[in-house]
Amino acid sequence: MLKELTKLEMKKTREGFGHGLVDLGEKDERIVVLAADVTDSVNAGFFARRFPERFVQMGIAEQNMATVATGLSLVGKIPFYSTYSVFSTCRCMDQIRISICYSNANVKICGAHGGISVGQDGATHQAMEDIAMMRSLPNMKVIVPCDYWQSKRATMAAAYIDGPVFIRFGREAVPTLTDESTPFEFGKGVVLRDGGDVAIIACGVMVYEALVAAEVLGKQGIDCRVINLHTIKPIDRDLIIRAARECGAIVTAEEHQVYGGMGSAVAEVLVSHAPVPQEFVAVMDCFGQSGQPDELLRAYGLKSEDIIAAVKRVLKRK
């Protein structure tokens, strides 16, 4: 299987987003897309060229974009606003909190360039707090798809999830784990590999790294369950509790700060319902820097080797 894992097609999640928007636009007149001077970097350009009358160029004005999207939702549109995740979330936090979440406005917040794998633009452009910020807000839902197809499906699903939704994409091409026919079920994690010694719960690009780690560990006699937790809020409590009860140890892996992200969300479930040891693979409370994407994932402890080490640590605590 490890060999097969290295043969997967490489595709960008942000492209899945762009194609999902076009498919949505074809069948639903209410879909409108907003962008803020990075239209093609986030692949909103596919929609902009296909449906120019339903595309709104905002210029470099993200806070205005968040609140204009809110207004569009009040007249029955389904607005998807898009830019790099640092700007679609952090830059607009108060607008998102009050105008979007408090009012439960039907706005879809799209963040491309999530995580440290953004690369050479460096810390300013690497969104690593977005999951924490978005999941802290009442009424918000949070989705972090793992590959191209899941991004496309999640984008299409988001249109019909009532109220605010945040979806996070990446910049780089990542291995494609799902295919055109794989369903996307909002709020339901997916068991990609069954196992009973430890459960590795991952999201985004880390799902692939988790599968690679599980393969290596399998050869060493450690039987890993791998879960793709694409929906972080609402969280799939039952799946996590079952994994904790059946495996007795959890490792979470995400391209995000350790504080407040998906790992924290899993820990919140564990301490309340099924306390078992947990280890976190995440960015350890520091800013990123410029470098090549893969180089950075390695330097900041976000590769399969780091997951393997975390599994070994957690098994000692079991």
Partner: peptide, 13 residues
């Protein structure tokens, strides 16, 4: 400039 561990980050620090 823009390389890993450089003091010259892509955006100024």
């Amino acid at each position: 400039f823009r390389k890993l561990n450089s003091r010259l980050q892509g955006h100024p620090h």
